[in-house]
């Protein structure tokens, strides 16, 4: 009998694991955004003294993990798992960072939902009694994502207003059995939802139904209502997807309008030329580990539902005419 399981998709932790430290690294554009004061390291250039975008991304992730572990005060040899993933083929940023960090490594892939997937698995391992200290991380880079998913940087093409900008950055958090706030109290694992989207330049509307499905399941399983949260924040739906998600939730009788926001909207200011907003693994990660974590420590927010969203496709399968499957995982963060 799975005593910690609630309903179909949700886990409620008996001894809610703590996030004892976080660290964030962001690129120059994010460093000019409205959340700039919440980040630990803002890069002056996109290469981070490396020879390629991919190597720069790996270095950002490694840097974020090292900073988070250092801040946590947990000795390096007491980190029992490193759980990470990213957008690049075969999650090379995560595994190459793991090569240098030397922690036991679990590589995961949830596209831009990776941060919530990592927090969920990490918290389950900690509350399950399998580890005392775990570090979770993820990264993305505008330039490495562009060349893998879209076009060379210098190609003179036009983007539609639904396009989003991949956040350059990395975030990491240490999850521990230590008795301190904020905690991870619930995790709702999402199902893969495909509503027939085909436009790779419009990820927000492709992912919105997955976010809504997971939020509905979370509320149903946990018997909670939106009133139980100070803020419900989706990962990277950006302006187009957020509006649609809100509409879909209203159709299901869930009104979140006064407490709903999206990391893809928080990370950039409207004056920045980013079309619909931010996306990428780092989008939800740096907003959660930078802004939300800090504001929870200060007590401005005490109950947050993070719903990180991901589009599970690559350009090959889209060219073969497949529709885009999406996922969202929810993690409840609370000051107890």
């Amino acid at each position: 009998m799975a005593v910690k399981k609630l309903g179909a998709q949700t886990v409620k932790f008996q001894n809610p694991p703590s996030i004892i430290a976080t660290a964030t690294v962001v690129g120059p554009v994010e460093g000019k955004g409205p959340l700039r004061n919440y980040f630990d390291l803002i890069l002056g250039d996109f290469k981070f003294q490396e020879k390629s975008w991919e190597k720069a991304e790996k270095k950002m992730l490694k840097e974020a993990v090292e900073m988070a572990v250092k801040k946590s005060g947990v000795p390096s040899d007491k980190i029992e798992y490193f759980i990470a993933g990213d957008l690049l083929n075969q999650i090379i940023s995560a595994s190459f960072a793991a090569r240098e960090l030397g922690y036991p490594f679990l590589g995961i892939y949830g596209a831009c939902s990776t941060v919530a997937e990592g927090l969920g698995i990490g918290a389950m391992l900690v509350d399950g009694g399998y580890a005392d200290n775990i570090v979770v991380g993820t990264s993305s880079h505008f330039c490495s994502a562009e060349r893998q998913y879209r076009f060379p940087l210098e190609l003179g093409n036009q983007r539609p207003p639904t396009a989003q900008r991949t956040v350059t950055g990395a975030g990491a958090a240490v999850i521990s059995t230590k008795n301190q706030n904020p905690r991870i109290t619930y995790v709702t694992t999402g199902k893969v939802i495909d509503m027939g989207a085909v436009d790779p330049n419009d990820m927000g509307s492709a992912m919105a139904p997955a976010a809504v499905d997971t939020i509905v399941m979370h509320l149903e399983d946990s018997k909670r209502t939106p009133e139980d949260y100070d803020l419900i924040v989706t990962g990277d739906l950006a302006s187009v997807g957020k509006d649609i998600a809100q509409k879909l939730m209203l159709q299901k009788g869930i009104d979140v309008s006064n407490k709903y926001t999206d990391c893809g909207l928080l990370i950039y200011s409207p004056e920045q030329d980013v079309h619909a907003g931010g996306s990428g693994c780092a989008c939800a990660a740096v907003v959660t580990f930078g802004y939300i974590f800090n504001e929870m420590q200060k007590g401005r927010y005490n109950k947050i539902l993070l719903v990180a969203t991901g589009a599970l496709m690559n350009s090959t399968i889209v060219q073969q005419g497949e529709t885009i499957p999406c996922i969202a995982h929810a993690v409840a963060l609370e000051n107890l």
Binding site: P161, T162, G196, D202, I244, K247, G321, T323
Partner: peptide, 21 residues
């Protein structure tokens, strides 16, 4: 290619109506 369901069709219609041009 997977078959497109009515639900998917309806959703794509909604997206078409709301997304910025």
């Amino acid at each position: 290619m997977a078959k497109i369901t009515q639900e998917q069709k309806d959703y794509q219609q909604l997206v078409k109506n709301v997304k910025p041009k």
